[in-house]
Design a binder for these strands. Structure first.
Length: 487
RNA sequence: CGGGACGUAGCUCAGCUUGGUAGAGCGCUUGCUUUGGGAGCAAGAAGUCGCAGGUUCAAAUCCUGUCGUCCCGACCA
């Protein structure tokens, strides 16, 4: 997928992806103008092109939330300490990462206010006020918000101190309904990742050690990055009655008994964009899936001396496509065509439409797909201008499909089902990818693996007839576990 | 939070060892010629050397502190 036709990088600030994924990733995020570092440690500015990605993610995911019966609302950023500490495990889990507001103006506050690291405490408190009867349930609310977590090591999208996400919070009358909701939203995330971000994932339940603080069960979708590390891309938590007890969400049921509600929470952040960037990018820069790309196509006019038809024609073409709802623009800047080609490839635009004198004479345009290498079969096609709309649509679909297919191949190559303890530990240490084994599901065993390899279980799945002994410790196996080093 | 590296023009970096007038390439501005894979020529503009102290006649250069970025680890959902 990468351009290795000549030794030097196309965009000199972007090192080869293979050589140093970290350096490649940071360079691409900055060069493609997705983000800039802000004058605050660990925070980034999401620039218009990066925000365009986020808006497209938001729009698609939001439709899916609405389609599953949820409504949006907004809750306060600041959470009184006394509320946050109500759920013991929850506080303990988040304590190291909470930022505190201690002063208002010159005046010291009588109670510290946490800047939300997540909103279970705030939303739980409100749900307690709103829920009295089984008739008030379920409550199905989502909020799009920013949160702050005091992180020590940060990277654009993957881990920043402040980040954008959505957090869904629901309350139900029964454990079964809460579990159903948790799994439903997990599947929404899985489908979104695969069909929109074109990032294949594995999904499943988390081990006890990897569970959200305060949850009964945590589920996640996990993507595999090119360096063999897993990237948790969304989570869905069945909170049982833990938070309902802590925050007093109770209701009178049909049997006239007062019961605690069952709650869930689920979230996807802009980290998903990081997964997408790392999964699809190549040595020329970003490759964006059409469904998320801020620009689906860019029209590059090619001017020739004494022939200035191309610019006007490109503008007209772009306007025509925009009228059909396409995210397209004409690049009429005073730069050479080659410069624009490189620029838009680096920024990941899925399709380029070239429009030069030859095309103008012939009534054609040239379509170039970003997912293909230069000179590769099908990379460039000449289409009649009258057929452009359909051809563009087909090309976008093809790019979307090809990116997913390539990513699926990468994932498949990094999945290993292992029977031997030594091979398991070696592959974990070696960062080979998802290493799957029959596993005992004991915290002590996981701690042992982590100490020896720094890998942890990412998700657990049902056993599929593997040997009944844990590959690590030989105790009875209860699940199939997928181990990996992770971001 | 520990180990390592780095902050000099918009970008990539040289200069620092051995203190003495702020440098290069790319980019930028203007003009002309160009334009189907990062164009050419000419002229021009542009830097409190991350920040704050200290040593010194003199600091980008030496010392201390601090802020930030990157890499490796620890922590983390």
């Amino acid at each position: 997928m990468s351009d290795t036709s000549n030794g030097s990088p196309v965009v000199k600030e972007i090192p080869p992806k293979e050589a140093d994924l970290s350096a490649w990733y940071t360079a691409v995020c900055l060069k493609a103008e997705l983000v800039s570092y802000a004058p605050v440690r660990g925070c980034v500015v999401l620039r218009p092109y990066g925000y365009g990605l986020w808006e497209n993610l938001q729009r698609d995911l939001d439709l899916r939330f609405k389609a599953t019966g949820h409504e949006n609302a907004y809750f306060p950023l600041l959470i009184p300490e006394s509320l946050l500490i109500r759920e013991a495990e929850h506080v303990e889990g988040f304590a190291p990462e909470v930022a505190w507001v201690t002063h208002g103006g010159q005046e010291k506050l009588s109670e510290r206010l946490a800047i939300r690291p997540t909103s279970e405490a705030m939303i739980g408190t409100m749900y307690a006020q709103w829920v009295h009867s089984h008739r008030d349930l379920p409550i199905l609310i989502n909020q799009w918000a920013n949160v702050v977590r005091w992180e020590k090591a940060t990277r654009p999208f993957l881990r920043t101190m402040e980040f954008l996400w959505q957090e869904g919070h629901t309350a139900h009358a029964s454990a079964a309904q809460a579990r159903e909701e948790t799994l439903r939203m997990l599947d929404v995330y899985r489908d979104f990742a695969e069909t929109v971000a074109a990032v294949p994932v594995i999904s499943g339940v988390k081990s006890a050690g990897e569970r959200f603080p305060g949850a009964v069960e945590t589920y996640s979708i996990e993507a595999m990055m090119p360096d063999g590390k897993a990237l948790q891309s969304a989570t869905s938590h069945d909170l049982g009655q833990n938070f309902a007890r802590a925050y007093g969400i109770s209701f009178t049921d049909v049997d006239q008994q007062i019961k605690f509600a069952y709650t869930t929470s689920w979230g996807m952040s802009w980290r998903m964009l990081g997964a997408m960037i790392m999964t699809h990018g190549d040595d020329r820069g970003l490759r964006l899936p059409p469904k998320l790309a801020p620009l689906e196509a860019v029209v590059v006019p090619i001017v020739r001396a004494g022939d200035d038809r191309a610019v006007a024609s490109a503008r007209e073409l772009a306007a025509h496509l925009q009228a059909q709802g396409r995210r397209v623009k004409a690049d009429d800047r005073d730069e050479s065509p080659g410069w624009k080609f490189t620029e838009w490839e680096m920024r990941g635009v899925p399709v380029r439409i070239e429009l030069g004198p030859k095309d103008l004479d012939a009534g054609t345009v040239v379509l170039v797909r970003r997912d293909k290498n230069k000179g590769e079969e099908g990379a460039k096609t000449v289409v009649a201008r009258a057929a452009l709309s359909g051809a563009l649509s087909a090309a976008l679909d093809a790019v979307q499909a090809a990116l997913y297919e390539q990513a699926q191949g990468q994932l498949a190559r990094r999945r290993y089902l292992v029977q031997e303890r030594d091979e398991f530990l070696a592959r974990c240490r070696n960062r080979d990818g998802f290493i799957e084994i029959a596993w005992c599901d004991r915290p002590e065993c996981e701690a042992q693996v982590k100490a020896e390899t720094t890998a942890t279980s990412r998700v657990l799945m049902p056993l599929e007839g593997e040997s009944p002994a844990c590959v690590v410790c030989a105790q009875p196996a209860r699940v199939r576990a997928c181990f990996a080093q992770s971001y």
